[in-house]
């Protein structure tokens, strides 16, 4: 008798758990957070990417390399619009160099020499690049206030910065 009671309860238990499994909605999309990958800042210190935040405002990551022509075009063109974007949306841009390790101090000289107004990060073994799943720069990722990647774009052609502008305004509710 006891055994039968036990089996019945077990069966009921299973049915309920299986049902919960079926009817609860599993949401993959909102989980697309910035990965917890370490990159270096210009001073050579480690920075955990998942901990980067900009309060209530969006963040943009632009991946580039000193030898990548389209990347330099993109960063030049975005630099001219950046001040305007910042005033309107409070956006912060991180230019992430995937150049190899040869060049921590060479990159700071290059970026300053170009008058680029960005925060610079160094992904010298391309760990962040792999975590985001692209294999060639330029790559642009737009991140909302909750640290979720909401839009990405691989490659750059002249004028793409205006599409990025529209996307930033969209998520900032303008």
């Amino acid at each position: 008798m006891k055994k039968k009671y036990f089996l019945t309860f077990l069966l009921i238990g299973f049915t309920i758990s299986f049902q919960s499994f079926l009817f609860v909605k599993y949401d993959f999309q909102t989980g697309k957070k910035l990965p917890a990958v370490k990159v270096k800042n210009i001073e050579g210190e480690y920075v955990d990417v998942s901990k980067i935040n900009n309060g209530e405002n969006p963040i943009i990551f632009i991946f580039w390399a000193t030898w990548c022509g389209p990347c330099i075009r993109e960063l030049n063109n975005v630099a001219e619009l950046y001040e305007d974007w910042q005033q309107k949306t409070g956006v912060q841009i991180y230019a992430v160099s995937i150049d190899d390790s040869r060049a921590t101090s060479k990159i700071s000289a290059f970026v300053e020499g170009k008058r680029w107004p960005y925060n610079i990060l160094l992904d010298s073994n391309q760990d962040l690049m792999r975590a985001l799943g692209f294999s060639n720069p330029p790559f642009t990722a737009l991140v909302n206030k909750d640290g979720e990647i909401v839009w990405t774009h691989n490659s750059y052609i002249e004028g793409d910065e205006y599409e990025l502008e529209e996307k930033i305004k969209e998520i900032s509710g303008q």
């Binding site: 009817f23 609860v24 909605k25 599993y26 949401d27 993959f28 909102t30 989980g31 697309k32 957070k33 985001l132 799943g133």
Partner: peptide, 10 residues
Amino acid sequence: NFVNAGSFTG
């Protein structure tokens, strides 16, 4: 009833 099931990328 949303349950965060993690993220799937590729």
